[in-house]
């Protein structure tokens, strides 16, 4: 696909959001939508500008992003490591998989009261919740990816004299990669969701905290702004994951011409 065609395909995804925002602005100006229910987009933009100037917005986005990434790094790497171990070793899988599947069925947000008791409202609480939320999609999909590697290719690798290391890096890991990327994208979604909930309930900084403070003072424009920024951050994370996917899965028919 040519560059301009790709630009065109991307642009089409933005038609709907732009129309919704335009309609919303018109409705607000006409007085159909009272400002104490939903402020006009222009009022949200003003709040954005005000908070940017004061540095508050950037600081809170920074705090939330750092939390999200730290939790993701911890939970994601443990999930990836266990997924690999359980995919490659029958013993490891026998030992841990049942336990993990049981824990997986507990909604991790149900642990919030316990987590507050353990960690208070400090950073550890958020880190723990995000890490736990991110762990499972990465773990489950890494394991699934390794188990779904074509055994015929593994046999071929052995027949052609690959040792365990070569077999892993040239056959098993590339074969598991598409599933691992599915896990990554799920995990990124869960990462933001968990963080928002955790920050809304117990925090003294960050985007969720900013939104809750604004609610206290009835600053609806700031509340709406926070929600929009969450949407943008989520979209950004997903786009990054897709970019990585396209770069590393160039061989996959689904990513050719795309």
């Amino acid at each position: 696909m040519s560059f301009s065609a790709r630009l065109h395909a991307n642009a089409i995804g933005w038609v709907l959001p732009v129309l919704v925002i335009a309609g919303w602005e018109i409705a607000s100006r006409a007085g159909v939508m009272p400002a104490n229910v939903l402020p006009a987009p222009s009022a949200v933009a003003e709040a954005f500008w005000r908070l940017t100037l004061s540095g508050e917005l950037i600081r809170n986005i920074g705090v939330s992003t750092a939390r999200a990434l730290a939790g993701f790094a911890v939970g994601g790497s443990i999930g990836f490591a266990l997924g690999l171990a359980n995919g490659l070793s029958r013993l490891s899988r026998g030992l841990t998989d049942t336990t993990l599947q049981m824990i997986r069925n507990i909604p991790h947000l149900a642990l919030i009261p316990l987590v507050i008791l353990w960690f208070g409202i400090d950073e550890e609480a958020k880190l723990f919740l995000v890490a736990l939320g991110v762990f499972f999609p990465i773990y489950v999909n890494t394991l699934l990816g390794i188990q779904s590697v074509d055994p015929q290719l593994v046999e071929m690798g052995r027949v052609y004299g690959m040792d365990g290391r070569a077999l892993f890096f040239r056959v098993i890991l590339p074969g598991a990669l598409p599933a691992i990327f599915v896990g990554l994208r799920y995990a990124l979604g869960i990462m933001w969701l968990t963080l928002i909930v955790a920050e809304t309930i117990s925090a003294s900084s960050g985007l969720g905290y900013m939104a809750m403070q604004a609610r206290e003072f009835l600053l609806i424009d700031v509340v709406v702004l926070s929600i929009l920024i969450y949407a943008l951050l989520g979209k950004l994370a997903d786009s990054l994951a897709r970019l990585l996917e396209r770069l590393s899965l160039g061989w996959h028919p689904a990513f050719q011409n795309g």
Partner: peptide, 8 residues
């Protein structure tokens, strides 16, 4: 079957 590595 050819058994080629699709990612190579």
């Amino acid at each position: 079957e050819p058994r080629l590595l699709p990612w190579a």
